[in-house]
Simulated assay, not measured.
Amino acid sequence: MKRDPFDVLVKPLLTEKITGLQEQANRVAFLVKKDATKIEVRKAVESALKVKVKSVNVMVVMGKKKRQGRFLGKRPDWKKAIVTLREGEKLELYESA
């Protein structure tokens, strides 16, 4: 079953750490669907953003515990993908930010 690239990629992650990685090692990060695999993320980035991908690292980020008075809750877990682009590849998405 082939998935739509925009069904795999939820949104780009723009943090200070990711911006530093983008400048130093040509890496970008995305929040992806929880059930997405490395291969699906690679295909989604290559087809949606028209760049060549060197490697993909994924990790599940555990949601934080939050309190509202005496009630304890938990934010949902989410998956992050750090994509290393090939030499000479650039993303205009991050250049304009």
Rank of each mutant, 00 (worst) to 15 (best):
A36K: 09
N26C: 03
K38G: 08
G73T: 12
K50F: 08
K2I: 10
A36V: 09
A81S: 15
F30E: 03
R3P: 00
A36C: 08
K11M: 14
T15E: 00
D7M: 08
Q68A: 08
K34M: 14
E92W: 01
K80T: 06
I82T: 08
V32E: 12
N26S: 03
P5K: 13
K2Y: 09
N57W: 00
V83C: 05
D77E: 10
L9F: 02
Q24Y: 02
K33W: 03
V28P: 00
M62H: 05
L93G: 03
L13W: 00
G69F: 04
I18E: 13
R67V: 05
R27A: 01
K90I: 11
A36D: 02
V41K: 00
A25L: 08
R3F: 09
K50L: 04
M59I: 11
T19V: 12
Q68C: 05
G88M: 05
E40L: 12
N57Q: 14
V60E: 09
F6Q: 14
G88Y: 10
V61K: 07
V8K: 00
V58E: 07
D35P: 01
V56Y: 07
P76Q: 11
L14R: 04
D77C: 05
V61W: 02
Q68H: 09
E46N: 07
G69A: 05
T84E: 12
P5C: 05
V61T: 13
V51Y: 04
F6Y: 14
L31S: 15
G20R: 11
K65N: 12
R67I: 06
K43H: 07
